[in-house]
Simulated scan of single mutants.
Amino acid sequence: MRALLQRVLEAKVVVDGEVTGEIQKGILVFLGLGKEDNFEKGQKLIDKILKYRFFDDEQGKMGWNVSQANGGILLVSQFTLMAQTQKGLRPDFGPAMPPNEAKALYEQLVAYAQSQFANVQTGIFAADMKVHLINDGPVTFNLEVE
């Protein structure tokens, strides 16, 4: 399971011309699910994201988490994060969780995230999403849990 986190000043997902999720200051999370992933791993990852300190505190250091920074989370499924890219010139998506399983797990993780944090927005699983963002910094981190 992988998550690419971007600290943003604003972000939104548009599907078929409609905004499906939108936040102001916060974290844009691209979430990739692998074949071996499960809900327990997802809980650990969501908990880590919520506690991860990469917002500036009063001293200008990355000391605040998203809650302390009064931010939001935009959670977007992205199976391409699971691609193997070490060999050849085309990504291998073999490690990604099959779509039906991934959709069910993604929905469970969204529900869990929303139960733990008030401001969680989402894209639409497997949709052709247009993601708009203003990266703050830029600050981007890749998180994984095993």
Rank of each mutant, 00 (worst) to 15 (best):
E58M: 06
Q59R: 14
G60N: 10
G60P: 10
G60V: 11
M62S: 03
M62C: 04
G63N: 11
W64A: 10
W64Y: 15
V66R: 01
V66M: 03
Q68V: 11
G71P: 09
G72D: 02
G72Q: 01
L74W: 04
L74V: 06
L74E: 06
V76H: 06
S77F: 02
S77M: 07
Q78F: 03
Q78I: 04
Q78T: 02
F79M: 10
F79L: 08
T80V: 13
T80C: 09
T80G: 07
L81C: 06
L81R: 03
L81Y: 10
A83W: 02
A83V: 03
A83C: 12
Q84K: 15
T85S: 13
K87N: 14
K87Q: 13
G88K: 13
G88R: 14
G88F: 07
G88A: 12
L89W: 07
R90I: 11
R90F: 01
R90M: 08
R90A: 10
P91Q: 12
P91S: 12
P91W: 00
D92R: 04
D92G: 05
D92Y: 03
D92S: 12
F93G: 09
F93L: 15
G94C: 07
G94Q: 14
G94N: 14
A96D: 08
A96T: 10
M97P: 03
P98Y: 08
P98R: 05
P99I: 05
N100E: 15
N100G: 00
E101D: 15
A102I: 07
A102T: 06
K103C: 12
K103R: 15
L105M: 07
L105E: 03
E107T: 09
E107H: 00
Q108V: 04
Q108Y: 01
L109S: 09
V110P: 02
V110F: 04
A111R: 11
A111H: 08
Y112M: 09
Q114R: 14
Q114I: 06
S115P: 03
S115M: 02
Q116P: 00
F117V: 04
F117E: 02
A118W: 06
A118T: 12
A118D: 14
V120W: 01
Q121T: 07
T122N: 02
G123C: 02
I124H: 02
I124N: 01
I124K: 10
A126V: 07
A126G: 00
A126D: 15
A127H: 05
M129S: 05
M129Q: 11
M129R: 05
K130G: 01
K130S: 10
V131K: 04
H132P: 00
H132F: 15
I134S: 03
I134Y: 10
I134E: 05
I134C: 04
N135G: 00
D136E: 11
D136K: 13
V139M: 13
V139F: 06
T140N: 13
T140K: 04
